[in-house]
Design a binder for these strands. Structure first.
Lengths: 236, 236
DNA sequence: TTTTGGGATTTGTCCGTACAAATGCTATCT
DNA sequence: AGATAGCATTTGTACGGACAAATCCCAAAA
């Protein structure tokens, strides 16, 4: 019933209108519309009132997805570890820092220097430079009071909601500055994570630069095979 | 219009039938059915012909997803780089190696040692120990002949299909053994990726241990907010 | 020449009808 | 008591109709 095929049309081309498909296939408009709805949900077509239906893609594609319940899961720190603030300051991003933060040179941030330690042993597992928008500077006083990640404290304290997270992972050597805080030798290997949190309007509201002694932290991810169907996804 | 709420019913309970909802809300059956279809696609209800509609869940949950078209995108190497085989051998996994490969101690693998270099300058960007099942050992002769990743060569050459990929990321220092091949000082920082590829029946068929000089490689990922809807996902 | 308004076309929303398929319950038969 | 058939209920599929909203094109007016 109403087997609609877009195989003969190029991507970007206009499909026959609903009423033409009704005539052509000898089915009701209801049936045509139902078939088109499925195709749209599969991401194969775009439908526009007044304009018509355009081919978007010839086939739906398999993909691979990693899914986490919350960005907090991305941090992968032990539950019995705590972040405590060491220092804060208001800064203007230098060109070099702007490159790391992926923001405009000269833009204003509040920097919060903090160390994360295991609760029982006091072993430090990371040193973080957390940059937040100045309008969120008050978050500094709440860090360490709860186990919530910083971004989440911001979400709850201000009118903000995460839309995406970007993470860069690099290897390096612990500098003299940070070696004492982390209780390691300067020059020992470290894993650095730069996490950029984007909120409403895709505005970047927090960037965390976290350096971890190599033997105290590593990072894992898992992706499973899934299928894209027009703005939606199914896991295989 | 046909605002259907399942808030008052427990999971597992039967919802009012379509015709009852028609009466109750004073809309047509078409409208009721459309609303129920959306709820079903969100995974909140299960509908059964002759039986009725059952509540499956109270809410759909937000999540965060990273989506890539193929596991090849995960490798993040420059397009103009090539992998070339240096050595291969059949091995039995020691206890230490088994821990890294996450396989049984004593299990058999074919190890393929290979270096990845930039094509033009010949600059080495990574040293890989690639472990494949012995039945896939013949893949070694195909590496370097095409730009396809190893797992994909295996997929195409044998009856295998990826179901998931697991990646561990660690920092360390380049050893004497590998320093010459990578043309860096021993003890300089490196980023190591352990990639485990699982195929049919979730059987692990390839594990790659790849070590990169820190300044020649880093790793990025991006997750965006999405919604789970009963076996499917939508990006926010 | 540019702008505006009207008409044609197309998809979107909601109404109604009819019949089929699936499920469960009850009554009757063996 | 167990099996079978019929009926009621419920969802599934497809038909048709009417009107609204969005888009584009063309002709007329400024």
């Amino acid at each position: 019933m109403g087997e609609i095929r877009s195989g003969r049309l190029a991507v970007g081309e206009r499909m026959p209108g609903e009423l033409e498909l009704v005539e052509r296939h000898g089915v009701s408009r209801h049936t045509v519309r139902e078939s088109l709805r499925v195709l749209e949900e599969l991401g194969l077509i775009d439908r526009h009132q007044g304009l018509g239906t355009v081919v978007r893609s010839r086939n739906s594609s398999p993909s691979y997805v990693q899914v986490v319940k919350s960005p907090g899961e991305l941090m992968q720190y032990p539950a019995d570890s705590r972040l405590s603030v060491v220092e804060t300051e208001d800064i203007k991003a230098s060109r070099q820092l702007a490159r790391q933060l992926q923001c405009r040179s000269g833009s204003l941030w509040t920097r919060i220097g903090a160390v994360r330690k295991l609760k029982d042993s006091g072993l430090p597992i990371c040193w973080s430079n957390i940059f937040v928008l100045p309008e969120y500077a008050a978050v500094a006083s709440k860090i360490g009071r709860s186990r919530r990640p910083v971004y989440e404290i911001i979400e709850r304290s201000f009118d903000e909601q995460i839309s995406s997270v970007e993470i860069d992972i690099q290897a390096g050597l612990v500098s003299e500055e940070v070696a004492g805080i982390l209780e390691v030798e300067p020059g020992s290997p470290s894993l650095t994570l730069i996490r950029r949190y984007l909120g409403k309007g895709n505005r970047q509201f927090e960037v965390s630069l976290s350096e971890h002694p190599a033997e105290r932290f590593n990072y894992s991810l898992k992706l499973t095979r899934g299928w894209q169907s027009g703005g939606g996804w199914s896991q295989g």
